[in-house]
């Protein structure tokens, strides 16, 4: 049997890396979350680049281990997981499929991130986002806390169905 071509190997590496899920949002793959930045072949294996969502995100170590394990299982001997900080992660990098997966699991997906030129303006009024309840679809929702169970989420409550839910905050 002929050895697989470089293209086929790269394809295999991509497929394995892209299937790895986020340890804290297991309905999302790292690719859909926008955390997986690059997959490339090296002489004896594969190198992938990931970027943290938040600087202190404790899931980075688990992501690294999961990528290593899955790529080894896919037949790559040498697996290097590199940190890419060249551009800070933004929720705008979450794919449409990723946003749908969040909503399907009861987590409200982020809207477009705020852009700013020059110094960030101080906001002393509550942030107004149009957040839809992922359970009943009502737009009558209110924030209960700007911070949640993980660094990337805020806590909301639906005024109609009264259920609490989490919203991935735009950054």
């Amino acid at each position: 049997m002929a050895a697989p071509t470089r293209e086929a190997l790269l394809e295999r590496a991509r497929a394995a890396a892209e299937a790895v899920t986020d340890p804290e949002l297991p309905m999302l793959t790292l690719a859909d979350l926008g955390v997986l930045r690059d997959v490339r072949l090296t002489e004896h294996g594969v190198e992938v680049a990931i970027t943290p969502t938040y600087t202190g995100c404790p899931a980075m170590a688990a992501m690294r281990d999961d990528l290593s394990r899955e790529l080894r299982a896919a037949g790559f001997e040498e697996v290097t997981v590199r940190v890419d900080l060249s551009e800070p992660w933004s929720t705008d990098w979450i794919t449409e499929r990723g946003k749908d997966a969040l909503t399907a699991h009861g987590i409200s997906a982020p809207g477009a991130a705020r852009r700013h030129d020059g110094p960030v303006a101080l906001t002393l009024r509550p942030v107004r986002r149009s957040v839809t309840c992922p359970r009943c679809g009502s737009v009558d929702t209110e924030v209960t806390s700007e911070f949640g169970s993980t660094a990337c989420k805020a806590l909301y409550r639906c005024v109609d169905c009264l259920e609490p839910f989490e919203h991935v905050k735009e950054i």
Partner: peptide
């Protein structure tokens, strides 16, 4: 695999937050 931090036995954690930078 479903434990965010594994059992600690599987891999040597490469914890360097600037790995490859």
């Amino acid at each position: 695999a479903h434990w965010a931090f594994g059992s600690g036995q599987e891999f040597e954690h490469s914890e360097d937050p600037l790995a490859g930078v």
